[in-house]
Every structure is written in structure tokens, then in C-alpha cells.
Design a protein around this nucleic acid. Structure first.
Lengths: 138, 138
DNA sequence: GTAACTGCAAAATATTTGCATCCTT
DNA sequence: AAGGATGCAAATATTTTGCAGTTAC
């Protein structure tokens, strides 16, 4: 796992540090999206708030993780499993929020549908957020 | 217009006050979503920050307006044109964000598609957010 | 050795709560 | 008159910025 996180960091020209490896490991081992406060509070890792902000921001910029728009406007982050690169996120999967366990998941196999828009509109990106009950809670 | 805003407030069992009429009028006359800071800063209305928070919250609860999930996690609000009621928002329209003018619009005529989920998942609500260039900017 | 990263302090921003006063009904 | 709404002060939460010390390369 360590090799893995180091490889990801190296590939993205980020220097290999303890904090970055920790955060990346949590993403790799955790099934579902994570929030800033997950890192700051839980997981018994006690990371510095500011460092977490900067790390998450760096990861988003490099295309390692992506943010997920949510109904309650909390900021959720999840690993990019698509071919994202610095400055270019190209996700087509949908996101799912469980109303029961409150977890957010990327459903990587389900791609966003084509949306027909009125004349004059051009489409760049489509985000789909589904709310319901996940398979674990059901 | 005044009659209109008063009617909406009355129908939702909210007492008719100046602030509520102002905010409601801005929603009715503005094409596109609005944010908290639109009310606090722009429009030359100088409304109290806290009152704006409470008013928007009350309107959301009553089903007069709804929030729109956005990629940058700013909180956007728009009028409910569907049959929403207290505690029950039932939108099926999609939302569009223009990358150029940064405005967010409800595309009321375009309803969200059915999304096929893996076994075990049940769907409650589907949100679609399209990013691109709007007809005005195009 | 140098550039990049971290962690602390502090600033800036955003949101919530309490309460006295005012307005709607 | 009574209950709800407003607006101010202040508490709390969130995010950003600056900088000195530390670490990666």
C-alpha cells in the first residue's frame, strides 16, 4: 500500500510526505467519499486542519481526487478512478447518497446519460446525484 | 406583484412582512438562481444577514424555493415552480450552470432521466447538474 | 542546498444562537 | 394582546493567508 501511495504521488509530481501518504491511504482503503472533517477529527490521525485543506486542494488539482456536489452543500471528496490529470477531470460516473447511512459513493459503472438541452445551450459536463437507500442499508 | 408575493406567503402560512416580500420579489423577477450574498450585498437592498438566512430557510422548508447542489459548493436558491409543499420538494427538472456568466438556471422543461442502479439500491431523488455555455453567452 | 511542505497563529469569511424590540394578526 | 419576525451582538464554524521551521529531493 505504501508503494502504491508513493507511486501515485510520484506520478503526479508531488513530493512524498507522511501527511500525503496518510490521506491517500485513507482514500484507498475507505469505500465512499470523505470530507475535510473526516481527516481532521476521525481516524485518530489528528492532522493539521490547514495541511488537510492544502493537501486535498493539491490532490484535486492533480486529478487524484474529485469533489462531489451534494444537496446539503457539504464538500465531499472521492478518488478519481478515471483518467483524470492535472486540470482535467473527466468523470462520467454518477454519485449516490444514502439517506440512511449518509454515505456518498461513486457508482463507477454507471455513466451519466446524455441530456438534451434547448437550442443555444452547449454541454461541457453532466453531474448526476442520486439519493436513496444503498445496498448495505436496504 | 405585491399581491402575488402576499398570496404566496399567505398560502404558506407565513406572516406578510417587508423582508419576505422583498426577497420573494427578487426571486420572481430574477431569471436564475440566487445566493445568500446576492441578498446581503447586491440589489441595493441592504438586508440583515441573519434575517436573510432565516428567511431563505423558512422558504425552503415551506417549499417556496429549493437549493441547488453546485460543483463549487456555493449555496444556490431558486423558486419552486413544481408542486412543492412544506417538507416535500418534488423536482424533476435539471439545473444548468453557465461556465461563462456563472449563472445557474432551472431548466424546468427538461426532466431528470431514469437511472438504472445496481441491485439493492433504491432511488428517492435524482439531481442533474449540467455545466456548459448558456444560450445568452453562446 | 534549495524548493517544497508542514504546522502554528491569525485573519477573513460564513453560519448559528440569544435576546430585546417591533410588527403582524 | 400574543406570537412571530426582525435586527443587533456575539458565539461558533469554516476557509484562507502569512510565515518560520522542517523535510524531501
Amino acid at each position: 500500500m505504501n508503494t502504491c501511495t508513493e507511486g501515485i504521488l510520484r506520478k503526479n509530481q508531488l513530493s512524498i510526505t507522511e501527511v500525503r501518504k496518510k490521506i491517500l491511504t485513507l482514500f484507498l482503503t475507505h469505500n465512499g467519499a470523505l470530507t475535510h472533517s473526516d481527516f481532521e477529527n476521525n481516524f485518530g490521525e489528528k492532522m493539521d486542519r490547514v495541511t488537510v485543506y492544502r493537501t486535498l486542494q493539491a490532490f484535486v488539482e492533480k486529478g487524484i481526487i474529485h469533489t462531489i456536489p451534494t444537496s446539503d452543500n457539504s464538500v465531499q471528496y472521492a478518488l478519481c478512478k478515471d483518467n483524470c490529470s492535472a486540470g482535467h477531470h473527466r468523470h462520467r460516473h454518477i454519485h449516490f447518497v444514502c439517506s440512511n447511512c449518509r454515505n456518498t459513493y461513486c457508482l463507477d459503472d454507471i455513466i451519466t446519460p446524455e441530456i438534451g438541452l434547448p437550442a443555444g445551450y452547449s454541454v461541457n459536463k453532466v453531474e448526476v446525484l442520486v439519493e436513496g437507500i444503498c445496498s448495505v442499508c436496504n
